[in-house]
Amino acid sequence: MTRADLRIAVLISGSGSNLQALLDAIAGGEIAGRIVRVISNRAEAGGLERARRAGVETEVLPHGDYPDRETYDAALAARLNTVSPDLVVLAGFMRILSDGFVEAFQGRLVNIHPSLLPAYRGLHTHARALQAGDREHGCSVHYVIPALDAGPVIAQASLPVHETDTPESLETRVRTLEHRLYPLVVRWIADGRVAMRAGRVCLDGEPLSRPPCITAGTP
């Protein structure tokens, strides 16, 4: 695959701030590829307008139109396959994906999670980090496998937890990290530097013993 060949599909459910970070990085020449489709399960998702303003094709596939998760995911996979994505990016897609969907796109399906995995899989990560008295918190980009938030981590970004932090302030600060980390990892994938092989992340051809971590100082 050459640098210009990466075809990216993005799945969203909400405002699309991570989608915007990717759009900005592509427009600035930081990522060698293009977003070929943005799909949302919610018609009111603000990220759809972000995509349209950037000239990216969008589609709404409401999950309520389908009787169960497997049927919905089969329809979603069929829609993605029409654009032949090399990479499927979950950017605030608030759906737990079925095993069949994940297996169909395994190795080209990535997600960003608001914790330093393996800590705090699932929801309410910022409140849980505060309740545990953590001094450090952050986000992780990982390949998606059938187990929830358990796929191999590609890279992380961290920041110190302040004594005055609330779940809301910590969420805001971590989101700023997400907007730096996700474009960086997608750039690595576009450049052929990162891949998943035999269930492990390889960076520059070598299996990672631990994911690289960007520190944010004290924003």
Score class of each variant (00 low, 15 high):
59 E>C: 14
59 E>L: 15
59 E>D: 14
60 V>G: 09
60 V>W: 07
61 L>H: 06
61 L>M: 07
62 P>C: 09
63 H>I: 15
64 G>H: 14
65 D>V: 00
66 Y>T: 04
67 P>H: 08
67 P>E: 06
68 D>Y: 04
68 D>M: 02
69 R>K: 15
69 R>P: 01
69 R>H: 03
69 R>Q: 12
70 E>F: 10
70 E>Y: 08
71 T>N: 08
71 T>K: 11
72 Y>L: 02
72 Y>V: 04
72 Y>A: 02
72 Y>I: 01
73 D>Q: 10
74 A>T: 13
75 A>Q: 08
76 L>E: 08
76 L>G: 13
78 A>N: 11
78 A>W: 04
78 A>G: 08
80 L>G: 10
82 T>I: 10
82 T>Q: 15
82 T>G: 08
82 T>P: 08
83 V>F: 09
83 V>A: 10
83 V>P: 04
84 S>L: 12
84 S>M: 14
85 P>N: 10
85 P>K: 07
86 D>A: 12
87 L>R: 03
89 V>M: 06
89 V>C: 14
89 V>Q: 06
91 A>C: 05
91 A>F: 09
91 A>D: 02
92 G>R: 12
92 G>C: 08
92 G>F: 12
93 F>L: 04
94 M>S: 13
94 M>E: 07
94 M>I: 15
95 R>I: 11
95 R>P: 03
95 R>F: 05
97 L>T: 13
98 S>C: 10
98 S>D: 05
100 G>A: 15
100 G>W: 05
100 G>M: 12
103 E>W: 09
103 E>F: 10
103 E>P: 07
103 E>Q: 15
104 A>N: 11
104 A>I: 12
104 A>G: 08
104 A>R: 15
105 F>D: 01
105 F>A: 04
105 F>G: 03
106 Q>F: 00
106 Q>H: 13
107 G>W: 05
108 R>G: 02
108 R>A: 01
109 L>H: 04
110 V>E: 06
110 V>I: 15
111 N>T: 12
111 N>G: 05
112 I>L: 10
113 H>V: 07
113 H>L: 03
115 S>I: 00
115 S>N: 02
116 L>E: 00
116 L>M: 07
116 L>Y: 07
117 L>Q: 03
118 P>D: 03
119 A>F: 14
119 A>D: 11
119 A>G: 10
120 Y>N: 02
121 R>A: 12
121 R>V: 09
122 G>V: 07
123 L>W: 05
123 L>G: 03
124 H>M: 00
124 H>E: 00
125 T>L: 00
125 T>M: 00
125 T>K: 00
125 T>I: 01
126 H>E: 05
127 A>H: 12
127 A>T: 09
127 A>F: 06
128 R>E: 03
129 A>P: 02
130 L>Y: 13
131 Q>T: 13
131 Q>C: 07
133 G>V: 07
133 G>K: 07
134 D>Y: 13
134 D>G: 08
135 R>W: 11
135 R>C: 10
135 R>D: 14
137 H>P: 03
137 H>L: 01
138 G>A: 06
139 C>P: 02
139 C>T: 13
